[in-house]
């Protein structure tokens, strides 16, 4: 299991990203539910469980619904990547898993700026957070090998408000390695 940031911390960071200060919507508290799933306790409504469920909820509270996709197609794609985040990235245990994820993503991002095409969405934020420990652990050679992931990652980490407290990952602007096979 990749040693990711605890879900509570990640969600608090997401609140900051979304501009949800202490005011808007009141104070949110997270606890760990069964199997480490985060649970959001709200004042007057039933508890919400699950990382991406809570994240989507926060987007709505922040009134930034465009982050969930503006068309039905886009929304579906966003949901698909949110699903990928919890089922694939959070479950990846071995070097082989990581390599597969990076390879697939690199291929997918070949002709895209953001995961859902031309618009920044919640999927970009959540995948950035999920991939951070993996990408930070790569050598420059591997970053260069997965150049599309690196381009996307570098772009997202510089997107206003996204990076928050995680360390910036350094990418070289020029190619260091001769045509990586």
């Amino acid at each position: 299991m990749v040693m990711a940031v605890p879900a509570g911390v990640e969600l608090s960071a997401l609140e900051e990203t979304l501009g949800l200060g202490l005011g808007g919507g009141g104070e949110r508290r997270y606890r760990q539910g069964d199997g480490g799933v985060p649970v959001l306790q709200t004042n007057n409504r039933p508890d919400l469980a699950g990382l991406t469920t809570i994240a989507s909820h926060l987007v709505k509270v922040a009134k930034k619904e465009e982050l969930l996709g503006t068309t039905p197609e886009k929304s579906a794609i966003v949901q698909q990547w949110l699903e990928y985040r919890v089922t694939h990235i959070d479950q990846c245990n071995t070097q082989d898993d990581k390599r597969t994820i990076l390879k697939d993503l690199n291929c997918y991002l070949k002709d895209k700026v953001y995961l859902a095409g031309n618009n920044f969405t919640l999927a970009d934020i959540m995948l950035y957070n999920g991939l951070h420990p993996i990408v930070a652990g790569l050598t420059h050679e591997d970053r260069e090998k997965h150049v599309n992931v690196s381009r996307w990652f570098n772009h997202i980490q510089h997107y206003p408000g996204v990076r928050q407290h995680s360390a910036a990952v350094i990418f070289m602007k020029n190619r260091l390695y001769p045509t990586v096979h």
């Binding site: 050598t139 420059h140 070289m172 020029n174 190619r175 260091l176 390695y177």
Partner: peptide, 13 residues
């Protein structure tokens, strides 16, 4: 050794 090699690539670049 890895840093040595990386420095080599940086110098080459």
């Amino acid at each position: 050794t890895p840093n040595e090699k990386l420095l080599g690539r940086l110098v080459k670049e």
